[in-house]
């Protein structure tokens, strides 16, 4: 068997993910999360007479709390794999990455394990979020004088 034939054979047997299926899944699950979050926001606004900003912040915390709890209970990893981007892009993905790296490195000690790996996955979000915001605010200051 020469190289080309081998390549063909490998390509044939590599499991191919159904991209259309993934995309529809991501849309439905992501949309559902957005729908639920809007529901919680409106519920809090009505129940406690809050402004939208305050209700949104509370809802954000509720979502993070639930995602962390579900990750700690062990079944959220499965959901994440199945939902793909549908649960990755909502705040659930952020909470899941913090919680799972915290759990995974727990046994390696409080400082060298938990402490230094806590933001292993979520750190880049915080880093690039801060950097880009800083640069963009400077840009806006320069433009507006």
């Amino acid at each position: 068997m020469n190289k080309d034939e081998y390549k063909k054979l490998v390509k044939k047997h590599t499991p191919r993910e159904d991209k259309l299926h993934n995309t529809i899944y991501a849309f439905l699950i992501g949309g559902f999360v957005g729908f639920i979050v809007e529901g919680i926001i409106q519920m809090l606004m009505n129940m406690f007479d809050l402004t939208r900003v305050v209700a949104s912040t509370w809802t954000c915390l509720i979502v993070i709390f639930s995602a962390s709890l579900f990750t700690a209970l062990g079944f959220f990893d499965n959901w994440m794999t199945k939902a793909k981007a549908g649960l990755l892009l909502p705040t659930t993905g952020f909470a899941h990455s913090v919680q799972s790296s915290a759990l995974d490195y727990k046994k390696e000690g409080l400082i060298t394990g938990l402490g230094s790996n806590f933001f292993k996955l979520a750190g880049s979000v915080i880093l690039y979020g801060i950097l880009s915001s800083f640069i963009l605010v400077l840009l806006k200051v320069i433009i507006h004088g």
């Binding site: 915390l61 990750t71 700690a72 209970l73 909470a95 759990l103 995974d104 806590f118």
Partner: peptide, 19 residues
Amino acid sequence: AAVVGAVVFAAFFTLFFDP
């Protein structure tokens, strides 16, 4: 709020749960 929330909840649950 999001960062503090994620840190506090993750640390709290890590106390009580194992991977």
